[in-house]
């Protein structure tokens, strides 16, 4: 079964970025600005079957993050279709729903509800999340008293305990100290071994090669190569070392 399917997907953005004032619309009307758009993704098609784990690799600005926001339904494609079946949980920018003035406990419940937990599931998983985060007594303190590593640990613990059908990971394998990183990696492997679908954006690393079976290589918004991770990452690294 195909759980993620992209058909001829194109996504363009304004070069100027989003924020606009009335002045900018007037300038547009008067033809003062150049409505130049750039392609974040250009005619990309691929599909992911149930239980597959796929890595998306490519240089900065290749369109990897744009791809993830399309798959999670955050942004609509400019052309083409994106079909996703089953609940996807995204580990994008961990802790984006967190607030510094709330305590760890309050942030867990808020973040859980944002990610779509029901009330009963959130309370049932609460202890497990706190235990995984290893924050102990700090859980009762406001988030602004946390170190950066502590905050990321908390965010990761919430997201990873959601038990999603599709797990989308955006370069978040490097969380906390080495001990905690190992624990996170182990948890992600555990999720994969349960037969979940994983879509992972990351730099090529030994862990990534072990985690994913397949890789998709993006460059300047275009799909360059799609195949077994060994071949794709070899080709990708070959291109990096010998620029043609």
């Amino acid at each position: 079964m195909k759980v993620i399917q992209l058909q001829n997907v194109t996504k363009t953005f304004h070069r100027s970025g989003g924020q606009k004032l009335l002045r900018h619309y007037l300038e547009d009307l008067l033809g003062k600005t150049d409505p130049e758009r750039f392609f974040a993704l250009k005619d990309v098609s691929f599909s992911v079957r149930d239980g597959e784990s796929v890595a998306v690799i490519g240089a900065n600005g290749a369109g990897k993050s744009t791809l993830l926001s399309l798959v999670t339904g955050l942004a609509p494609p400019s052309a083409g279709t994106v079909t996703v079946t089953g609940r996807a949980a995204a580990l994008l920018d961990l802790g984006s729903g967190f607030h510094p003035d709330l305590t760890g406990r309050e942030n867990i419940l808020l973040n859980a509800s944002l990610l779509g937990f029901s009330r009963s599931r959130a309370y049932a998983l609460y202890d497990q999340i706190v235990e995984f985060s290893e924050l102990d007594d700090f859980i009762k303190e406001p988030l602004r008293t946390y170190s950066n590593g502590m905050m990321l640990r908390l965010a990761f613990s919430v997201a990873v305990n959601l038990d999603p059908q599709i797990l989308i990971i955006d370069e978040v394998l490097a969380v906390g100290d080495q001990k905690f990183q190992a624990k996170c990696t182990e948890k992600i492997f555990e999720i994969r071994n349960q037969g979940r679908t994983i879509l992972c954006v990351s730099h090529v690393s030994p862990t990534l090669r072990e985690l994913c079976d397949r890789a998709i290589w993006l460059d300047h918004g275009q799909l360059i190569m799609d195949g077994p991770i060994g071949e794709v990452s070899a080709a990708y690294e070959g291109r990096l070392t010998s620029p043609a």
């Binding site: 607030h99 003035d101 709330l102 309050e106 779509g116 937990f117 029901s118 009330r119």
Partner: peptide, 25 residues
């Protein structure tokens, strides 16, 4: 698509706003 608990989310967001406003007064 997001298929979550609307009431639980709404409650958490309202409580968040309220707490933030009053905790600093």
């Amino acid at each position: 698509m997001w298929k979550g608990d609307y009431l639980f989310l709404l409650e958490n967001l309202v409580v968040k706003d309220f707490k933030i406003r009053y905790r600093n007064m």
